[in-house]
Nucleic acid binder design. Structure first.
Length: 195
DNA sequence: CGTTTTTGACCGGCGC
DNA sequence: GCGCCGGTCAAAAACG
């Protein structure tokens, strides 16, 4: 309710690799399922339209990493592609994953996220955090996990598309790359003390 | 006071 | 059918 639907119909992409770059992060790989259409994401409908072409990322061969770490699992697995099979959840959404080298796992992308779960996966010695958008009607989820092999790397996966503008109101018009003066990655406002 | 965080339990799906 | 895994929700507590 804070923001209308698409203030910028022109700009449909919520997460642009470019944007991330602006943050000054190192985007190893990024991949978008598709531009998606827009019809979805309205008032939070779980509708399972279209299909779910899972779009994983992680190249794994990018260079030194060599190992590829993450890739190990992911990929190819097509995360549940059921068209109309499930009752809810898994709405033909967008899946974007980023692997960035950051000390902090939680980077402020302009949205407010409520942590709703933590789970440790077998593949990684580190736990995985699940975040959900705090905005009403916005069911975007975010999965953050630290690379077990490279603790310096953080894998952030976004699921879905916001129906509201970011509270931060980033003004990215159409300029290719406009990094405001000191636009650097800043730790979220909250989550500082914890405990 | 409201919101968010935290931990555990629960559930569903898949594999065997 | 059972076990495994991952994901989500829930209640309580902490914090602003």
């Amino acid at each position: 309710m804070d923001f209308p639907v698409n203030p910028n119909p022109n700009y449909t992409a919520q997460f642009d690799p470019l944007m991330m770059m602006d943050f000054g992060l190192e985007v190893e790989d990024y991949l978008k399922d598709d531009d998606d259409d827009d019809g979805l994401g309205r008032g939070g409908d779980w509708r399972v339209e279209q299909d779910c072409s899972s779009a994983e990322i992680f190249a794994g061969g990018s260079s030194t990493t060599g190992s590829s770490a993450a890739t190990a699992t992911s990929r190819s697995s097509d995360i549940k592609c059921k068209n109309g099979v499930k009752k809810n959840k898994v709405y033909g959404g967008q899946r974007v994953a980023f692997r960035t080298k950051s000390e902090l796992e939680v980077m402020d992308d302009g949205y407010k996220w409520r942590k709703y779960g933590k789970k440790s996966v077998k593949n990684s010695p580190n736990p995985r955090n699940y975040y959900k958008c705090s905005s009403g009607g916005c069911n975007v989820k975010k999965r953050v996990e630290r690379d077990g092999k490279d603790s310096s790397y953080v894998i952030t996966t976004y699921d879905g598309v916001h129906n509201h503008e970011s509270p931060a109101a980033v003004y990215y018009t159409q300029m290719p790359v406009m990094a405001p003066n000191g636009w650097s990655l800043q730790p979220s406002s909250r989550s500082s003390s914890s405990s």
